[in-house]
Each structure stands twice: as structure tokens, then as C-alpha cells.
Amino acid sequence: MSFWLYQLLAGLSFAMLLFISSAGLALIFGVMRVLNLAHGAFYAVGAWVAIALAGWTGSLLLAAMGGIATAMAIGFAIERILLSRTPAEELPQALLTFGIMLMLGDLALWIWGGTPRTLARPEWLSGPVRVAGIVFPSYRLFVIALGVTIAGLLWYLQARTRIGTMIRAAADDAETARGVGINVPRLSSGVFTVGAGLAALGGIVGGPIIGVHVGTELDVLLLSFVVVIIGGLGSLAGSFVGAIVVGLVDTLGKALLPDFALFTLFAPMALILALRPTGLFGRQQ
């Protein structure tokens, strides 16, 4: 019994980390219809910069803010300078962002070298706690709480605020949104920047658990794709459910079939795409 409870909690904490890391990808696709293959690179940038800043300043809060700000600045520049000049078609956008991922990944390798690093966890979250009879790391519970909080904030932002209404309008019909006076290009810049920042936050939250290494950007990108595909490209609620499915399947898969962890991860994605191409929560086109 305690084995299953432990796996469930571990799966949920991984799920919430996945949600934080992939929500930006869903948001960006929803509004801009851009498949952002550089998404995992923002995760890696957040983690690398935060680890470096934590080393210099000794403050995890400063490190987190610095990591997020760096990723947001890079995201903003990429959207304004490069993406806005790219034809609005899937393939050129995919190639451009894949190239950016390669460049950012190699830049990180150049600056920080090939040694995998982890971020220190805050002292008040470093110990284990007792939950329903099992001993569980408190940091992982914190990740679950943070993921739920961010999901709530994003839902509120999208469903209850003026900005959220504009985002939904642009996602539904960009042309009409323009027609009623919504500045869609500026909205796109904003969404892309926030999406990059969310990915960086994922990198920072994941920093003490999985850390960052050469190739993290591609690993995170593929995981995020599985999450947003299962939920439905462009749907935040979908990514939340997708993250929980992937988090549990992956954790159980690793516990029960360790050799085929990658297969158990990608097979559901292919299955969903084959049976229901728009995902569990995506709207039929």
C-alpha cells in the first residue's frame, strides 16, 4: 500500500513539474499557432542561470528571479526579432526554433561545461515529512502545491481577466480579434515571453530534483510535447490533465518496466494522435 501511495505522490509531483514546464508551450500554440521547439531551451536557460546565480549570490530567490528574467528576455528578443519575420507556417517556425534550441544548448555547454548540475533546495524544504504513514520529501510536496497554484493562477488569468479574454479571442480568431482592436502582435510577444518565463520556472523548480545537463533542452521539449499532445495542443486544462497522465504513467512505467520507460512515454502520445488528433481536450478542427 505504501509503495503505491509513494508512487502516486512521486508521480503527482513529477506531473506538476511537467505542467509548469509545458504550460507555456500550450499557451504559445494556443494563441500564436507556433510549435515552439525552443521551449525546452528556456527550461535549460532558467536552470543554468539560476544555478550560476545561486553560486554567486547565495540567494535562491535572486537566482530564481534572475533565471526567469533571462529566459523571458531571450524569449522576447526571439519573438520580436526572428519569429515575427518568419512565414506563418509550421515548418519554417519549427526549423527556426529548432535552430535556436541548438544554439542556446551549445551556448550553455560553452559557458557552463558538460557537467550535470543541480540547484540547492531551500533549507526549509530540505527535510522529509510524514504523510499518511509514509516518509516523503517535503520539496516534492512543495512542487505539487506550486503546480496547483500556478494552474489556478493561469486559469484565473485566462477566464476572469481582460488580458485573458483578449488571449482567448486571439486564439479563437486572430483576424476578428484584430478587427475589434486587440493588438495581436503585442499580445503574441507577451504570451511568448510569459511562456518562456514559465518554462524557466520549470527549470528552476526541477533544478533540485532532476537538475540540468547537456541535452536537457531536448529531453524537456519531448516531454512537454507528450504532455500538450495528450491534453490537446493549445489547451491549458488539457496540459494540466496531460501532465498528470504523463507524470503517473512515467513514474509507474519507471517503477514497473524500467527498460521501456521511453516507450511507455511516447506510445500513449502516438496512440492519442492516431485516435483523437486534437488530444483529450482540444477542439475538433
Partner: peptide
């Protein structure tokens, strides 16, 4: 599939085979 979904399904199918090659 077409558009973004075409890119995704081709990626997903390739990753399934990659996962097998990586695990078996």
C-alpha cells in the same frame, strides 16, 4: 494529419521506435 499535427504524429511515431531501440 496536416499542419502542426502532421509534425507531431511523425515525431511521436519516430519517438516510439526510438524508445524501443533505446530500451531493448
Amino acid at each position: 494529419a496536416s499542419g502542426a499535427y502532421l509534425l507531431m504524429i511523425t515525431l511521436a511515431l519516430a519517438q516510439v521506435v526510438w524508445g524501443i531501440a533505446y530500451g531493448w
